[in-house]
Amino acid sequence: MSELRFSLADVAGVRLVVSPANETVMSMWALADPVRHAVHLPWIDRARVTLRRPEVAVRVRPLVDLTRPQRWLPDFLTPAALPNMGMAEQLDQIAATPPAVVVRDLLATTPNRPLSQFGRALLGDPRGLLPQLVDAVRVWYDEAIAPDWPRMRALLDADVSYRAAQLAEGGAGRFFEQLHPSLRWLGDRVVSDDPFERDFDLRGRGLALNPGVFANRRVLWNLLEDSMPAGAYPVRAVGTFWEGAARPSGDPLARVIGPGRAALLDLLDTATTTTDLARLTGMSAGNVSQHLTALHAAGLVVRSRQGRHVLYRNTDAAMVLLRASRGG
Rank of each mutant, 00 (worst) to 15 (best):
L4C: 06
L8Y: 02
G13Y: 10
A21K: 00
A21V: 13
A21W: 00
E23T: 01
T24G: 11
M28W: 04
A30N: 11
D33K: 06
V35W: 01
A38D: 12
V39S: 10
L41S: 14
L41D: 12
L41G: 03
I44M: 09
R52M: 12
P54A: 07
A57N: 10
A57E: 13
V58E: 15
R59W: 02
L63A: 13
T67K: 09
R71G: 14
R71I: 11
A81Q: 02
L82V: 15
N84Y: 11
M85F: 01
M87S: 05
D92G: 15
I94H: 08
A95W: 00
T97Y: 01
V101S: 10
D105G: 08
L106G: 09
L107Q: 11
T109K: 04
R113K: 14
R113C: 13
P114W: 02
L115P: 03
R120W: 08
A121N: 08
G124T: 03
D125L: 08
P126D: 07
G128M: 00
L130H: 11
Q132V: 10
Q132H: 14
L133E: 09
A136Q: 07
E143W: 10
A144G: 08
D148L: 15
D148W: 12
P150E: 05
P150I: 06
P150A: 01
R151V: 14
R153L: 15
A154V: 05
A154S: 12
L155P: 00
L156G: 00
D159L: 12
D159V: 13
E169P: 01
G171N: 02
G173Y: 01
G173E: 01
G173S: 06
P181Y: 00
L183H: 08
W185I: 10
V190S: 09
S192E: 14
D193W: 05
D193V: 10
F200T: 04
L202T: 02
G206T: 06
L207Y: 00
V219A: 09
W221Q: 09
N222S: 14
L223I: 01
S227E: 09
S227R: 14
M228I: 06
M228H: 07
P229S: 03
A230D: 01
G231N: 05
A232N: 11
Y233W: 13
R236K: 11
F241Q: 07
W242G: 03
W242S: 09
R247V: 02
R247E: 11
S249C: 12
A254M: 05
G258D: 08
T270K: 09
T272M: 14
T273E: 07
T274Q: 14
A278V: 05
T281W: 01
G282K: 01
S284E: 03
S289Q: 12
S289A: 15
L292T: 01
L292E: 03
A294N: 10
A294T: 13
A298S: 14
R308V: 13
V310R: 05
L311D: 09
Y312P: 02
R313N: 08
A318R: 09
A318Y: 03
R323V: 01
